[in-house]
Design a protein around this nucleic acid. Structure first.
Lengths: 171, 171
DNA sequence: CTGAACTTTCAGTAAATACTGAAAGTTTTG
DNA sequence: CAAAACTTTCAGTATTTACTGAAAGTTCAG
């Protein structure tokens, strides 16, 4: 594969990764920046990202900030160089744990809170509608709590190096 | 809890569930309709949904269609009644399996396809950038494949009745 | 076949989300 | 301290996504 083909393959990959990202809840540009950084051998500065992905400085800046907020990329600086560079976590299991931890915090915890507070009301025992509401919210709360717990166990960084092997055995 | 309080609690729950849904990739209305149906004792028709959630016929129709497409709700008809009613799957584990199956089909499979086709190109062994691209896409492909497999195992309906107990033990 | 009962579609519009680029802010250097 | 090098913010705008409601479509009873 010659260099020209490679550049094209890579660009195509990054573009497509963005499309996939947006079919999740992730914005296209953020997914593309992440893909770009995952495939970068060395840390990259904002200008390079702007040029390669054809996006504005503001857009690059805010998506990089968000990615750093998720813990998926790190800011890197070199002594004697005032620019900031960015570098992605490249280990997929570490990435998975990071994402799991953040999603738990941002999505699971609020859901659990709503479900628990809803299910802990007092209801009329003779009203089937109230009974259903009570039992459904309770069942959902328990489910989410279980999911939470599993993610917790799985996303502890110590175990995350064992887990891949365990799971492969499990096939 | 009197009936008025209950109505309010339920409405608040449905509204909030919608907010949570949209912090995932799910649209607010769809999440609300689903919540409404999960908490409904009997099958519900389009008009009731329109009134209760204050949405248009078109909106109700298309979100109901999509929910049915996900397999999260069923269409119900009664002999001698021309209207269609809708009813949600209420068992949370069955719901989970359904969602897992659909997400696999809609999100995991396309990602896997992209990753596999990208990682199966031939690369220059002496170019570190090409090497990184090759190894990253391969690692991602393997990860996604594993996730896929785990979901597959978990989302088989037979086992889904055992799994909750298993996981509770695991605490 | 006709019309009532119901469902679906879709052009137009509203709302939410993402993006731009210039201005303001910050840090460092000479 | 001034100016250069860089980063952040944010008002305005573009793009995407969701929603409305009326019209078209479908099914069925008489």
């Amino acid at each position: 594969m010659d260099d020209k083909d490679f550049k094209q393959t890579k660009a195509e990959f990054i573009a497509q990764w963005g499309v996939l990202g947006s079919s999740w809840g992730i914005n296209r540009t953020m997914a593309q920046i992440h893909a770009y950084l995952m495939m970068a051998v060395e840390p990259v500065d904002t200008n390079e990202i702007m040029q390669e992905l054809k996006i504005s400085r503001g857009n690059a800046n805010s998506n990089l900030r968000d990615l750093a907020g998720w813990g998926l990329i790190r800011r890197v600086t070199y002594p004697g160089d005032r620019k900031e560079y960015f570098e992605a976590e490249k280990d997929v299991w570490t990435m998975f744990c990071t994402i799991a931890r953040e999603r738990k915090r941002r999505e699971i915890d609020p859901a659990l809170q709503l479900l628990q507070s809803s299910s802990k009301q007092s209801f009329k025992k003779n009203d089937p509608e109230q009974q259903l509401f009570a039992s459904q919210t309770k069942a959902l709360a328990e489910f989410v709590q279980t999911a939470d717990l599993v993610l917790d166990k799985v996303a502890r960084s110590e175990e995350s190096k064992v887990l891949p092997f365990l799971i492969k055995r499990f096939r």
